[in-house]
Simulated assay, not measured.
Amino acid sequence: MLERAGTRAFLYNLHEGSPLQMQWLFYGQSELPVAVQTWELPPGGFEGMHSHAEPGRPLEEIYVVTEGTGQMTVEDETYSVAVGDAVLARAGTRHDLLNTGKGPLKVLVIWGEPRPADYSDFGSAKMARVARTDASPD
């Protein structure tokens, strides 16, 4: 099944931020327990400071920059982000994304309810564990 970039995109305002273009990939088709979305923020565009700590429905988000530059604030830390960078916003943390570049900021956003998942039998999980052990923490 293929979903082409932009074919089901729409404008949306998140968390009192500025309008952004969003595409919810495979909405209503995938049975994975996460949402996978592409967002495009115009220069100066922002998501809006918020958290996902609603009782009974906490959400965790991963942001992966695919084009452009921006600034991601998570609690009291602000990070400059560029292509290939990823940021984790754990459930309940206040966070915001801002496009600081002259062109669009494109991100892949994966979000859902945090819960344990065991992928330890997969070879890539074993290699990721080794890579995290050998790498310096950020």
Rank of each mutant, 00 (worst) to 15 (best):
T69A: 13
E40T: 14
G70Y: 00
Q71M: 15
V74C: 08
A35G: 15
E47S: 12
E61W: 02
S30I: 04
G48S: 09
M49T: 14
M49P: 06
V36A: 14
E54H: 06
E75F: 09
E75A: 14
H52P: 01
H52I: 02
L41E: 02
M72R: 00
A35V: 14
G45L: 09
A35Y: 13
M72T: 08
Q37G: 07
A53C: 00
E54S: 05
P42G: 01
T69L: 06
T66D: 04
A53D: 08
L41D: 01
G44V: 02
F46V: 08
H50C: 08
V65Y: 04
E67R: 15
P58I: 02
P33W: 13
G44K: 01
G45T: 03
A35C: 13
E47L: 14
L41H: 01
E31F: 09
H52S: 03
P55A: 07
M72D: 03
A53N: 10
G68P: 00
G48F: 02
W39M: 06
E31L: 11
V74I: 15
Q37Y: 09
L59A: 07
E60L: 12
P43W: 03
H52M: 10
R57F: 10
Q37A: 14
E75S: 11
R57A: 15
P43H: 03
T38A: 07
V74M: 12
T66Y: 02
E47D: 05
H52A: 04
I62L: 15
G70A: 03
E31M: 12
V36C: 10
Q37D: 11
S51A: 14
P43R: 05
E67L: 09
P55Y: 05
T73Q: 15
I62N: 06
G45S: 07
W39E: 00
S30F: 05
V64P: 04
P42V: 06
M72C: 12
G48V: 01
P42Q: 11
H52N: 11
L41Q: 01
V64Q: 12
V74T: 14
V34K: 02
S30L: 08
V74H: 10
V34W: 01
Q37F: 07
G70W: 01
P43A: 01
T66W: 06
E75V: 08
T69M: 10
P42D: 08
E31Y: 05
T38E: 09
V36D: 05
G68E: 00
L59E: 10
G70I: 00
E75L: 09
I62P: 02
P43S: 03
V64Y: 10
W39H: 11
T38F: 11
T69H: 14
E67A: 14
G45K: 02
